[in-house]
Structure formats: structure tokens, C-alpha cells
């Protein structure tokens, strides 16, 4: 099953990944990271198709994608 991992300490919570994920896999976390942002987290891992769009639109090199 495809999978994304998130280096949440790099995330600045711009929301581009959440907006552009075609399957609604991602959402904002309720916790804060060290920078003070609510980092993106995987809300629905089962929906991920490993398309890498999150990684491509991410300005902060947060994602690794496995398929």
C-alpha cells in the first residue's frame, strides 16, 4: 500500500499539500511543531495512492513517498 512520511519539524503549515492531495489523505495536526506551526499529518493513510503530488507542491521538502 502506498505511503507518505512527514518530517513534521520542517513543515510550515502552508496547506498546499492538503489542498492539492487528490484523495484527501492529509490534514493539519492539532499539535505544534518546534517552529510553532500545526504540521500536516496523515489523516487517512488508507486513501494514499502514492502520487507524490504532496511532495511536489511542498515548498519545504517535508514528504517522502513510498509505493
Amino acid at each position: 500500500m502506498p505511503k507518505v512520511t512527514i518530517r513534521e519539524e520542517r513543515c510550515k503549515a502552508c496547506g498546499l499539500c492538503i489542498h492539492y492531495c487528490p484523495k484527501g489523505v492529509l490534514g493539519p495536526s492539532e499539535k505544534f511543531n518546534a517552529k510553532g506551526y500545526h504540521p500536516t499529518e496523515v489523516k487517512h493513510p488508507e486513501k494514499c495512492i502514492g502520487c507524490t503530488i504532496c511532495a511536489q507542491v511542498c515548498p519545504d521538502q517535508v514528504f517522502e513517498v513510498y509505493r
Binding site: 502506498p2 510550515k12 515548498p59 519545504d60 514528504f63 513517498v65 513510498y66 509505493r67
Partner: peptide
């Protein structure tokens, strides 16, 4: 699994200072 995306090797693995969404 096969890694299909990760931080490019030609970039240092460290955060940058650009603003969110830049």
C-alpha cells in the same frame, strides 16, 4: 517499498528560511 519521492541528494537535508507557501 520503493521510495518514489524524497529530498533530492543535491539539496542539503536542512530546513530553509522561506516563508510558508513560498
Amino acid at each position: 517499498m520503493k521510495k518514489v519521492y524524497s529530498i533530492p541528494e543535491s539539496l542539503r537535508n536542512r530546513p530553509h528560511h522561506y516563508c510558508p507557501g513560498c
